[in-house]
Computed example of a mutant assay.
Amino acid sequence: MPLLTTLVDNFNDNVIGPNWGDSYGGATETGGRARVPLVAGAYAGYQTGRAWTLAGASIYLKLATRPAASTGTDVSANFLVTSPVEGTSIGFKYNAVTNKLRLQSNVDYYDAAAIELTYSATDHLWLRLREDGTNVYWDTSPNGSTWTNRRTLATPAWVAAAVDQCALDLYAYRDAGVTDYAEYDNVNTLADGAVYNGSAALTADSSLASTGAVAVISAAALTADSGLDTDGRLAAHASADLTGESDLGAEPAGSDTGDIDFAVSKPTTGWVVSAPWR
């Protein structure tokens, strides 16, 4: 059961979203607003499908741009929640000819008990419609935050019966005069922020500047004649092969062998020991 409270749009992507699939008469999303043209003799509206519920919900918006009366005698910008029954609706109507804001609960397109206020571009800039299970309330605000109640009415039976069957219709009409438009903004939101996606086509010689940090990994390919310097340590192992005719000398440290004679022969008796060994 989608309550109208959950319908949120600030119109900042300049594309009519899927919630407004029943829009008609040349309505567009332009300059961050829902724009509804007023062409003499033609109706136009920014409209949802018939799938919403007013019972227990609230919905507010900003009437950002109002049409001029010009030479028309019937020129209006409307903010209505409509029922499945033709001509049965509830909401606001701005009359550009009389400069009145009409708070109405229509049956067969009319409410004999409607309340009309002299329109104030400041006090009535924001409009809100809400229902609490007992009553429907019409509120206005200069800023979308501080609200003043302007009318209270016992909830019409159709509001509770038309669950998932209501539509929001932001429509405009003029019977004569110069073509202009009405603009609506900030449905159920005070936020005007937006995210825009951009793209850039780069040719082979193009460059793209960025303030972001870039990590670069580089590699060097060495040819057979290339050199590579390094501060690292190189450990080498060497070995020597001695042939049978090689000489290897060793001298004990601290020994003097200059006065020693060695005779190597077959041992015999009668060894003679001479000085200094006696």
Rank of each mutant, 00 (worst) to 15 (best):
T82R: 08
P84C: 05
I90V: 15
G91V: 14
G91K: 09
G91L: 07
F92G: 12
F92N: 08
Y94W: 12
N95W: 04
T98N: 13
T98Q: 14
N99H: 11
K100R: 14
Q104C: 09
D108I: 06
Y109Q: 10
Y110C: 02
A112H: 06
A114F: 01
A114R: 08
T118N: 15
Y119Q: 09
S120H: 05
A121P: 03
A121W: 02
A121E: 13
T122A: 13
T122I: 14
T122S: 13
T122H: 03
H124A: 07
L125R: 15
L127S: 06
R128H: 03
R130Q: 12
D132I: 10
G133S: 10
N135F: 01
Y137N: 09
D139T: 06
P142F: 06
N143A: 10
N143C: 10
W147F: 11
T148S: 13
R151W: 02
R151I: 14
L153D: 14
A154F: 00
P156V: 13
W158H: 01
W158Q: 01
V159S: 06
A162P: 00
V163S: 08
V163T: 14
A167Q: 08
L168T: 02
Y173D: 07
A176Q: 10
G177L: 06
T179E: 13
Y181T: 07
A182M: 03
Y184E: 05
Y184I: 13
D185N: 12
V187S: 03
N188I: 03
T189K: 02
T189C: 04
T189H: 00
T189F: 00
N197K: 11
G198V: 10
S199C: 04
